[in-house]
Design a protein around this nucleic acid. Structure first.
Lengths: 349, 349
DNA sequence: TTGTAAGCGTTATCAC
DNA sequence: GTGATAACGCTTACAA
């Protein structure tokens, strides 16, 4: 029990409800509701009285009761699993779009569940809140099909952020196109030996790189592959990998004059290694990153990089989910959408 | 109306409730509830039957109905106003702690309300959701007293993240101490002329700087002040300010051999300017930042900086709010807590 | 140990 | 136009 003269502690004041308003205005609850929701016929006089009473008593509709009665939820749950700035930027776009549509967004940040079972349990907890829809980021290494099927079974609309899964409704990012354009940009600036710094097993970015070369009708002459880093791996690992790559670079017989890196972190690490070895960027070698993290604008030199349209991607995801919630039929092309990246030209290339 | 054979679109399946479980197990609703909530006496046999039925039908309690009945909310609203990584890190700690306590956290990211009225409106929208508590970040330039008073009037417990307001319950950060320790560290490394790079009007960090000097019994010999940047200002502005400061530095008759910067962004900009002018860090001048942003680990050289205990601060804020919600009496020392920073030593100093 | 009845604040259904 | 009345799924109080 809260103590007596405690201020702001533990006991929310009772907020005036329809009942109080109705009593104050001398009408029935139903009439008050009609006037305040503006949906039925109410006499002008009566309406005035009711609105006055509502203002006086500070009426605010109880969304909980409304939800219970209408069996509709005004909440969206989103499983972020991470606080990476790229995720957050997408969430921000998503949240704004959702708020515009009068939904509240509940976020689960916590740490990534390591086991499938743990992830499942988290999902069940989310579902307890009866969200109107669920948005989730892909768990690294997991096709999201299990999650998606669970959601489908519960009849809850979902959308996945930037999933690479096939049958999964998602707002996606065209990574290949981004790298393609970046390489073409480097070529247009006269670079002859454009290397790709990253792993062989990351498909999309490497695809874009190769596509650019087939377009340029050159052979992808210089290509550095640095194993030991998973694509989804921690940013700091990528930094170290990039840094180590500078020594490899230094020892090459024919050095590249430009490098497209897998990520900003890797590019930034490469930059650091280059500086340590006395190379100048972009004079000796141009460097392009991928992601356009904040750090890409705070480095020396500032990093030219392929920017993710994170905000727009979040908005697109929200639109998909909103449409599904509204019960619109799936468009012939499917729900998923793919968004273009854009090249941010700064000093490093 | 949703169309017929639509999968996963718009119409959540009816979830088995207490009524269904009770029917399946052949008991009353009340008994089923007791068994499932594990709070009353239920015969072992009956309990088995009920649990079996619940598992079979996939029971999950309806938190909305529960909220309505108990007049208790299991939601916390948080006004972030921003997606800055420092905010997000605090929110992450907060969210995890809240989830452990079985609360869901609803976040408002959007953009900062420019007018007081806009902020007020946002607050009212938050309140419609009847949160059990509210957490908010301070709006730059605004004492949060108006917000706090509104919340107090509604009887909703609150906590503010890292507020500098006097009577405001908050989990705070000891910035002065952080700078104090950093300067002492620089002095211990033998630096003679330790400058502070920032504005005169930011009190806490500058205080720490001055305190360190009075402790060292030296006069704060070199002190660069760069106006034109507000403390709360955008990170990129800070970068440019820091960069410009490198030229000032170069022209000084007696140059500092170490610089404590206002923020990581400013330090990183300073680093960039220094590199452009051919200075070496830390050989020619050591640089210390403040915040320990991600970018501080991705720069060259990597930035020594004062780290904010963001996660812990979020957890501390959650603890304060949880205590207030539980109706605990305010401790004699007040609800607010102040957390220490820690120096992250990397290559720049 | 178990069952019955009432009610949280709202909206839906039907009379008047 | 307006007003009773029931219901959403759950918990509390009390009776059996």
């Amino acid at each position: 029990m809260p103590s007596l003269a405690q201020s702001g502690t533990g006991n929310p004041k009772k907020v005036a409800g329809l009942k109080e308003i109705a009593a104050e205005a001398g009408v029935s609850i139903r009439t008050a509701a009609r006037a305040l929701n503006g949906q039925g016929y109410v006499g002008a006089q009566t309406r005035k009285r009711i609105e006055h009473a509502a203002a006086k008593l500070g009426y605010s509709p109880n969304r909980i009761a409304r939800s219970l009665r209408t069996q509709k939820s005004y909440e969206i749950a989103i499983a972020a699993w991470s606080t990476d700035e790229l995720h957050i930027a997408k969430i921000a776009g998503f949240e704004q779009a959702m708020r515009r549509a009068r939904y509240a967004v509940t976020i689960l940040m916590g740490q990534q569940p390591d086991t499938e079972a743990a992830g499942r349990e988290v999902l069940e907890t989310l579902l307890e809140h009866r969200p109107a829809g669920v948005a989730a980021f892909p768990l690294p290494g997991a096709t999201m099909t299990a999650t998606v099927e669970r959601l489908a079974a519960a009849g809850i609309p979902y959308v996945i952020f930037d999933s690479r899964g096939e049958g999964v409704d998602s707002a996606r990012l065209d990574r290949a196109q981004g790298v393609y354009e970046a390489v073409l940009y480097l070529a247009a600036k006269g670079h002859q030996r454009i290397a790709y710094l990253g792993t062989r097993d990351e498909p999309s970015r490497l695809d874009g790189y190769l596509r650019a070369f087939s377009h340029l009708a050159r052979k992808p002459c210089y290509m550095e592959v640095t194993p030991g880093t998973q694509p989804g791996g921690g940013g700091l690992d990528s930094y170290e990998t990039g840094r180590a790559a500078a020594w490899t670079f230094a020892e090459m017989a024919e050095r590249p004059d430009a490098v497209q890196a897998y990520s900003d972190e890797m590019a930034l690490g490469f930059l650091a290694g280059l500086h340590e070895l006395g190379f100048q960027v972009p004079k000796d070698v141009a460097v392009v990153g991928f992601d356009d993290r904040r750090a890409a604008s705070l480095s020396w030199p500032r990093l030219t990089t392929v920017a993710q349209p994170s905000h727009e991607l979040g908005v697109a995801a929200a639109e998909i989910l909103l449409r599904k919630i509204a019960g619109e039929p799936e468009p012939p092309s499917g729900w998923s959408r793919t968004l273009p990246t854009r090249l941010m030209v700064r000093e490093s290339a």
